[in-house]
Amino acid sequence: MTDFGAAISTAFALVANLDSDLSEVVALSLQVSLSAVLIASIIGLPVGAALALFRFPGRTFLVIVLNAFMGLPPVVIGLIVYLLLSRAGPFGVLGLLFTPTAMIIAQVLLITPLIAALARQVMETLWLEYEEQLRSLGSTPLRSLGVLLRDGRYSLVTAVLAGFGRAIAEVGAVMIVGGNIDHVTRVMTTSIALEVSKGNLALALGLGIILVILSVLVNGLVYVLRGIHRQGVTP
């Protein structure tokens, strides 16, 4: 128990003092996951919108692939990216394995389907409501897409935040493709796994505390946005 108590107080001290090892790991985590969310949103939001609005060849196939990827465990996605990037793999020449870029790729694969699926849900509901009125007013498909993105913006931000939550909390995929190399590819989750196995509870706990704070912040943001959304908005 005293060990545990000591670990907690050390952990808080580490967080409070912004310990340099700790901040390095946190910074890399944020850098990797924010990049992944940015890329995944750029791909996922339009894909989700297109799936909701348009009927095109290959649409069903895309939906199936998205749903399948959404259900895959992160380690499997890590494995796929590993095979693709490994020396013998098709993209081996790029030398990306065990770099932050590899981790970003894995997280993009992990959360793009989630963001696309959530976006599609949001857009489909809105489109069901708006379609006839927009067509009646003479809106072009592109203009309609703009209206849906604008009017669904709060729900879409929620989808993006959900993607960020999944990316930052994920351990299996980044462990496999990043390799958890100190000062290079060590992020919060892989670091926690390592420190726990080494018995270094203080650092692990410190990181855990930061993850919890981040998670609370993100969820708080989602909650606030939902609130704004419900009340309606005035531009």
Binding site: E129, Y130, E132, Q133, S136, L137, G138, S139, R143, V147, R150, D151, G232, V233, T234, P235
Partner: peptide, 27 residues
């Protein structure tokens, strides 16, 4: 040259005047 009012009003999530402005901009 046509317009339609539906049984359930469909309004965009913006201000009252912006809703009309949007329709005018489409025309």
């Amino acid at each position: 040259h046509q317009a339609m009012v539906f049984q359930r009003p469909v309004l965009l999530r913006r201000s009252v005047q912006a809703n009309i402005d949007f329709a005018l901009s489409l025309r």
